[in-house]
């Protein structure tokens, strides 16, 4: 049985208050929900990024669990290395065989979709027992809002700026959750910080799997998305309601839709809340990009419904 809200609220605090993440940042919400999902010991690997630099400014740390950061592109390899040592010592009887240790890697979309993709793919293929969480805020926010392959079409970033000629990013975002599912890994899912039941249940499922699992969390960044800090949760909910970021899971090859909005909200509702898309609401070119975004959302949604047997 998944933990209820009371049990979750009583879970040990593994990322404490006092960290230096921005007001309204989605990351600590996601991290706390993921880590509250298991009472077993957990050891974290963290890629270079906002979460890493804002929670561990020496001599302070906001972590009450063992935590390791080595570099940007290797969170999966780092988690895999610790897990490999754990399995070795356990097999040799040097660690109590009855205790289950969880290993979790946290990385942004830069460290996951782009520079860290190879390490992630390799760790998943090798079958390490670890949960990889992508804190996906759809750009390189830590270095100042540069585009990533997770940035959506039309997004205004500092390396895909909205200019007089080019209206922001000209490419669609990579469908990484589907890429991970295509590894035939035991468990791949995507979710948002706005639905605590969905995210904690997925983390619990991931922790109980004897192999690799992947959760892609759309994590609003008020600074990069240029949205109000108090709207982090509601904007992530809009991402689900517009089907821009559907909630689903692929459990041992079985595709399951976890949330179907009562009414599919037009994607403009999601875009208009964010300054990164503001330029798309001026002129014909912007309108055309918004049309393409809606078309893409519709196409991907139908594709997902089909995969989940819900079309």
């Amino acid at each position: 049985m998944p933990k209820n809200l009371k049990q979750l609220s009583e879970s040990p605090v593994r990322l404490t208050a006092g960290h230096r993440l921005c007001p309204g940042c989605g990351e600590p919400i996601v991290v706390k929900q993921i880590l509250a999902a298991s009472d077993d010991p957990v050891i974290a690997a963290n890629a270079t990024g906002c979460l890493e630099v804002s929670t561990t400014i020496f001599p302070y740390t906001a972590w009450t669990i063992p935590w390791l950061h080595i570099a940007f592109e290797n969170a999966a390899a780092v988690a895999a290395g610790m897990e490999a040592m754990y399995q070795s010592l356990k097999n040799q009887g040097k660690i109590d065989a009855d205790t289950n240790y969880n290993f979790v890697a946290f990385a942004g979309d830069g460290g996951t979709y782009d520079i860290g993709f190879q390490a992630l793919s390799g760790a998943v293929e090798r079958g390490h027992k670890l949960l990889y969480v992508c804190l996906n805020n759809q750009a390189y926010m830590n270095t100042g809002i540069q585009r990533s392959s997770a940035s959506p079409l039309g997004a205004n970033t500092t390396t895909s700026p909205a200019g007089k000629l080019i209206p922001g990013k000209t490419k669609y975002q990579k469908d990484l959750t589907a890429c991970m599912a295509a590894h035939d890994m035991p468990y791949a899912a995507q979710t948002i910080p706005g639905r605590w039941r969905d995210i904690t249940r997925k983390a619990e499922r991931a922790f109980e799997i004897d192999g690799p699992s992947f959760i892609n969390v759309l994590t609003p960044c008020p600074l990069g998305w240029r949205c109000a800090p108090e709207e982090t949760v509601s904007i992530s909910q809009l991402a689900a309601d517009t089907c821009f970021w559907p909630l689903y899971e692929v459990d041992h090859g079985e595709w399951k839709l976890n949330y179907r909005p009562k009414e599919k909200v037009p994607v403009d509702e999601f875009l208009s809340k964010q300054g990164r898309f503001r330029h798309l609401f001026k002129g014909d070119q912007g309108e055309e990009v918004r049309r393409q975004i809606q078309e893409r959302v519709d196409y991907k949604w139908e594709q997902l419904l089909d995969r989940c047997g819900e079309s």
Binding site: A77, V78, G81, M85
Partner: peptide
């Protein structure tokens, strides 16, 4: 592992694990 970069990353992490 799938590369030397991951090799040394995993080795460093495994050593840090103990």
């Amino acid at each position: 592992v799938e590369s030397e970069h991951s090799a040394m990353s995993a080795c460093t992490a495994a050593a840090a694990a103990g």
